[in-house]
Design a protein around this nucleic acid. Sequence first.
DNA 1: ACCGCTATTCTGTATTGCTATCTACTGGTA
DNA 2: TACCAGTAGATAGCAATACAGAATAGCGGT
Lengths: 116, 116
Amino acid sequence: MGKQMTEMLKGTLEGVVLAILAVRPAYGYEITATLRDQGFSDIVEGTVYALLVRIEQRGLVDVEKVPSEKGPPRKVYSLNALGGEYLEEFWRTWNFLAERIEQLHHNIENPQEEGA
Amino acid sequence: MGKQMTEMLKGTLEGVVLAILAVRPAYGYEITATLRDQGFSDIVEGTVYALLVRIEQRGLVDVEKVPSEKGPPRKVYSLNALGGEYLEEFWRTWNFLAERIEQLHHNIENPQEEGA
DNA sequence: ACCGCTATTCTGTATTGCTATCTACTGGTA
DNA sequence: TACCAGTAGATAGCAATACAGAATAGCGGT
């Protein structure tokens, strides 16, 4: 993966996964597949599992083991109240950053408007 | 600073600084002040200087020492051609990520549209 | 000449997150 | 039996920001 993308995912991937779980509960393998579907084509699975461990330890998600037809039991994660709050803050942080970055982009393309 | 913001800045702060330099050359102390002006109120200077060292070593900027009335000479950084290309790639990476995250936000607020 | 003030740069150490790679387990199928 | 696909995890390594503090350089006042 591009180095820029790798760095940019730090701090955003977590929000992305929480946002996926906000739509409906899911298990790790499924989340990885969803991410790949949505264009994050070279996210490695280990990354997702490590992230899931972190958010579980922070109490942002509830976990339920569900037997699977093939392979080990699935660990189905669902966003809980604390996770919901955390996700809200993620959106606030994201919006803050996105606004400022868009502003910078605008500045570059319209350099004359500088002042104020 | 909020932990989420700290993590989110990884990979974006570099682009932000390059974007500032794309508008006009600047020195470290000035860049820090600009960032604070623009709402990144608790960026610490050490972070900016470390970043400037990195982008200089990667050859993304040109540096010129300019004497200052008070204090050590300023190191004025200006974006060069390589830096410009790198910034272009930053915008591509950012746009990719921003699009997907906006999509997720949309999904959460309109859960019924799921399929497709 | 000295002191202290401010502007400016730089230098550790700590913390965190993603990557890459590998292991392990389960059940079906050739 | 051997292999494949689904599923979870562990480890070591790297890169970036945070934080605190030191160092440098000129100037004004006494």
